[in-house]
Design a protein around this nucleic acid. Structure first.
Lengths: 173, 173
DNA sequence: AGCTTATAGTTAGCCAACTAACTATGTCAA
DNA sequence: TTGACATAGTTAGTTGGCTAACTATAAGCT
């Protein structure tokens, strides 16, 4: 994602507002800040995971497997839950297999399916990194009080519900 | 970036919390929501820009040039402001040049430098897409009242100031 | 049974980010 | 003034997303 390092200040936005009268400066600044916080946290998370030879994609796959009672799932189901294409999931699983964090087993009933299972090594990897992850999330969120965290959640949810405005013309009046 | 489609619910997080006692479920959920809102908005923005044969990287370069009085800057300065590597900027500028949205001119004084200038076509492209962009940002932010927007801004800023917790061991106590 | 269509996974090729290494030019201090 | 270091931009190679097309298998009509 774009790393929005340098959000325009009010003066610069005013220049744009003169050229494009629809501009609501406050809205734009809030929007850009949302993008920036998201991308910065995402990059930060990646840099933490990289210490364990993972990135978000493969880490998330391990977490999805950990959720399952038998530590197993199929590539399609994982792709769906992780929000990536099946092709991308193939690549992620290739990487996890190379590091022996998962194993591939052919399904019994449906011979098209493959069963992905997290290995002991995969579990050990998660056990290794998750405490530090939670510790850092806590550190981060200590920026806010309990009440503020609740507020932030609620505000994010409201924005999230409108996320389709960019994609779909029908949301414009 | 990871598309966190499926944020774990409280029950699943509880399972993780049993395994990793540091877990603060509320903090994790808020963190994941921040990531998700950011990535969704980013993908949405990309899909809007794609209608105009742009993505965030090249669009942001055009915006940076538009801010300049003479519509010009250098690749290094642009890389710095956009928060990408100089190598990435070379690639973005290649793309913009291919579509004739910018021009490259050799600098006078420092013969290492190259001057990038937005063309008339580049300005026309921005003039074409920016109104729709602002319109959509407004649509999005109408999810919140004026007061809520102010609140959100302030909460985001507090979180943003702690963004380095993932990168730098020294921020942990 | 035999088409047609749908689903699971992989492969190939594209894109835009990255780092490392390279060329060319500039700067500065002994 | 020249040798060491710094800066500007590009190139090469890697990564992890994507779509489109492919193979194999399954399911459902008629």
């Amino acid at each position: 994602m774009l790393q929005v390092k340098d959000i325009p200040n009010a003066e610069i936005l005013q220049k744009f507002a003169d050229r494009y009268p629809q501009t609501d400066i406050k809205n734009v600044m809030t929007f850009l800040n949302l993008l920036r916080v998201g991308s910065d946290l995402s990059l930060g998370l990646n840099s933490y995971l990289a210490e364990y030879d993972l990135l978000q994609g493969r880490w998330w796959v391990l977490l999805l497997l950990m959720r399952e009672d038998n530590l197993s799932s199929t590539p399609s189901a994982l792709a769906e839950k992780a929000g990536v294409s099946r092709a991308t999931m193939t690549g992620l699983l290739d990487g996890l297999l190379r590091d022996k964090l998962i194993s591939r087993v052919h399904g019994r009933q449906d011979r098209r399916q493959i069963l992905i299972r997290m290995t002991v090594l995969g579990q050990a990897k998660l056990d290794d990194l998750m405490p530090g992850y939670y510790q850092r999330v806590n550190q981060l969120m200590q920026a806010l009080s309990e009440t503020e965290t609740t507020q932030l959640m609620s505000l994010l949810k409201k924005v999230y519900q409108r996320r389709h405005v960019f994609e779909d013309e029908s949301h414009l009046k």
